[in-house]
Design a protein around this nucleic acid. Structure first.
Ligand SMILES: NC(=O)c1ccc[n+]([C@@H]2O[C@H](COP(=O)([O-])OP(=O)(O)OC[C@H]3O[C@@H](n4cnc5c(N)ncnc54)[C@H](O)[C@@H]3O)[C@@H](O)[C@H]2O)c1
Ligand SMILES: NC(=O)c1ccc[n+]([C@@H]2O[C@H](COP(=O)([O-])OP(=O)(O)OC[C@H]3O[C@@H](n4cnc5c(N)ncnc54)[C@H](O)[C@@H]3O)[C@@H](O)[C@H]2O)c1
Lengths: 220, 220
DNA sequence: TCTTAATAAAGAAAAAAATCTTTAATTAAT
DNA sequence: ATTAATTAAAGATTTTTTTCTTTATTAAGA
């Protein structure tokens, strides 16, 4: 019984900072690909991203892709390895709740396709929005969510409602079988431990920026 | 000469993770304030944010606000302390370049006022957008940026242009006296070391979420 | 062919952050 | 007034992440 534990491969020992850096590598690699560059070295990537070269080597090692001494990594091979690792080459269908300003911007955003994510439907309670389309994505009455999520086997939910209703939307999503919630409201959502919450807290970024800005102003 | 160094207070030894958590404390505190709650303990805050109680105590200690044993922290006092520390009670005026979908969403967003930030003008190269207004914020020709930034002493720039032009916008901003750039494009911008870059890389969050989602699916 | 320089890779060390532990204060209950 | 429980605060420990160091490989140049 104890033995099994050593045989089962550990779920995710990849450091989160590494995962966060990977899409940045991809951005650079895609540009290099477009410029018909065939190989790139870790120090080159490191310079463009202001990180340590050995950090780049370590990050890339998690993908299983190996480089060649004095040559670097094959650009296309590395793109493939990163996309495979991140799951960007698979199809991830998502539902969005709250088709307001931010929700609409996300629906319009073409960049998610590069990450394999597709917002297939949006939901709102505003009668004026229900029945409309945003960038070809239909906006349904929130009531329809349960039925559609079950039928289409949707596992990703995006919340861009006002903060005041975010928790109740999250509760509904959990009940409807959503496994991962991308939360753009400033609320800390409470969900069962088997549901993944990904917060994009815009204030956190703003706070860090203002903090640094205040620091350099103090120096003067 | 060496002595001076010990007298001058260190610029910012506050851990970035602490700064990132502070706006979340504020969100909860504002709700407590609205509910006329006068005191809150660190363990209470910790439970709501799923962080360690001692972490909360440590984070709050950076604001200089002290709590009372068996009572907790005064809600209003703590709000004041956090806002003061983060600079949310000061006025931060910003220019935004790229009045597209995301840029417009940010301009419409009322929440920045809570953080003292005000987008005072937007800039674009699209003739159809120049001369219009978004949520009362005028959209000017990019050419006007330099002149206005200098006259209004703007130090914060927000970039929501297509990724392909982000670096050249950043270069222009630096030349025009911008001290902090909030970058929403997936590009790693190169700027002089005295200019602050704050990236909001949406792919990084997506990558972490997909990675965790893949991990739980693997377990099954 | 031999040498040199660049680089991936692995491991060690350092730094940063989170968590755990202890202490002391003090409020509320008895 | 006394006791017990709660909690802030400070410090120690552990964990995580980054940076530094070493080694070995190998492509390019002499
Ligand atoms: N706009 C931004 O740039 C921005 C940036 C960061 C964070 N946010 C956050 O994103 C969220 C939305 O912001 P916004 O500016 O798009 O607001 P918004 O008012 O434009 O959009 C909210 C939408 O949610 C809908 N809605 C309200 N209650 C609902 C419910 N119970 N079920 C389903 N839909 C419901 C509304 O009808 C509306 O369409 C907020 O929580 C905000 O804090 C916005
Ligand atoms: N829309 C989203 O939800 C979203 C999410 C994350 C990141 N982003 C990033 O934000 C950026 C903008 O995305 P979007 O969806 O708003 O695109 P968009 O095309 O709607 O907006 C871009 C705007 O920039 C303007 N522009 C183009 N060149 C310019 C220049 N040289 N100077 C000034 N303005 C210029 C365009 O006229 C347009 O108004 C992209 O880099 C994208 O990767 C968008």
């Amino acid at each position: 019984m104890e033995l099994q534990n050593t045989l089962v491969k550990k779920p995710q020992p990849v450091p989160e900072p590494t995962v966060r850096r990977m899409p940045s590598y991809l951005t650079i690699l895609h540009r290099l690909h477009d410029e018909h560059v065939l190989f790139v070295s870790a120090p080159q990537l490191a310079r463009q991203l202001n990180v340590d070269p050995t950090q780049v080597v370590k990050d890339i090692s998690y993908t299983g892709i190996t480089g060649r001494t004095r040559v670097g990594y094959g650009v296309d091979e590395l793109i493939g390895g990163l996309e495979e690792f991140l799951g960007f080459n698979r199809k991830h269908e998502a539902f969005l709740v709250g088709a307001g300003f931010l929700g609409s911007a996300l629906m319009q955003y073409q960049g998610f396709r590069e990450a394999g994510m597709k917002i297939v439907a949006a939901f709102d309670t505003d009668k004026k929005k229900i029945g409309t389309e945003v960038a070809g994505i239909p906006v349904f009455d929130l009531e329809k969510f349960r039925d559609l999520a079950g039928r289409l086997h949707i596992t990703i939910g995006i919340i861009t409602t006002p903060a005041s209703v975010a928790q109740q939307i999250a509760d509904l999503m959990v009940g409807w079988g959503i496994k991962a919630i991308w939360n753009f409201t400033p609320i800390a959502l409470k969900v069962p431990s088997n549901v993944i919450i990904q917060d994009t807290h815009i204030y956190a970024n703003l706070a860090v920026m203002l903090n640094k800005l205040a620091a350099i102003k103090e120096e003067i």
